[in-house]
């Protein structure tokens, strides 16, 4: 080109390093997007929320040392509505005192949760998180999602959606986890 370099000519020596930077940026964006989801084997993020029908707040730290089942639910979510009475039966049938069930409600309007619970009363603690801070910290990808947390605060089982077949698995896992010592490695 008359001694002048063609500005549109591909110059691999310049493109390759830029591609590497672009790939690294893309990988970090994907990693950040996935990092939020709490996986089995990871420590459960702590939270402390107001309880429905009680004055005191309740959180994971208050039941530390117990096996904890955390269920995220909302009154507008059909599978959650199906699951709540089933979890009530499950808890009632468990003889363990070292087990706690915390149901985190994410309804924007408190009365929606109250209306549902008036029709389907439950004996376990219902916590209110209308802002959705706790599901955000757990990186929920669907409703309902539930976590079984061992005595040391580590997630040992995660259920996405509700399948009645999971109840047997859940019961077995709870039975197994309550036998583990709190200070197990």
């Amino acid at each position: 080109m008359n001694g002048r370099s063609n500005p549109f000519r591909a110059r691999p020596e310049l493109i390759r390093p830029r591609l590497r930077v672009f790939a690294a940026l893309l990988a970090s964006v994907v990693a950040i997007a996935n990092a939020a989801a709490v996986e089995v084997g990871e420590r459960a993020p702590n939270f402390r929320l107001p309880q429905l029908g009680k004055e005191a707040k309740l959180g994971l730290a208050d039941v530390r040392g117990k096996v904890v089942f955390v269920d995220f639910w909302a009154s507008w979510c059909s599978p959650c509505r199906e699951a709540m009475p089933q979890y009530e039966k499950l808890q009632a049938s468990l003889p363990h005192t070292d087990f706690a069930l915390l149901a985190v409600n994410v309804d924007e309007t408190r009365s929606d949760a109250e209306e549902f619970l008036a029709a389907h009363p439950v004996g376990y603690a219902v916590l209110l998180d209308p802002a959705g801070d706790v599901p955000k910290s757990y990186g929920l990808i669907g409703m309902p999602t539930s976590y079984l947390i061992d005595r040391r605060g580590v997630v040992r089982w995660r259920g996405q959606g509700f399948k009645s077949a999971d109840l047997d698995t859940l019961r077995r896992e709870i039975d197994r986890l309550v036998k583990e010592p709190a200070d197990a490695p």
């Binding site: 507008w76 924007e108 599901p135 955000k136 929920l140 409703m143």
Partner: peptide
């Protein structure tokens, strides 16, 4: 987000 779908679930 999944927990923000109240209106979509109407």
């Amino acid at each position: 987000q999944p927990w923000e779908r109240a209106h979509l679930a109407r």
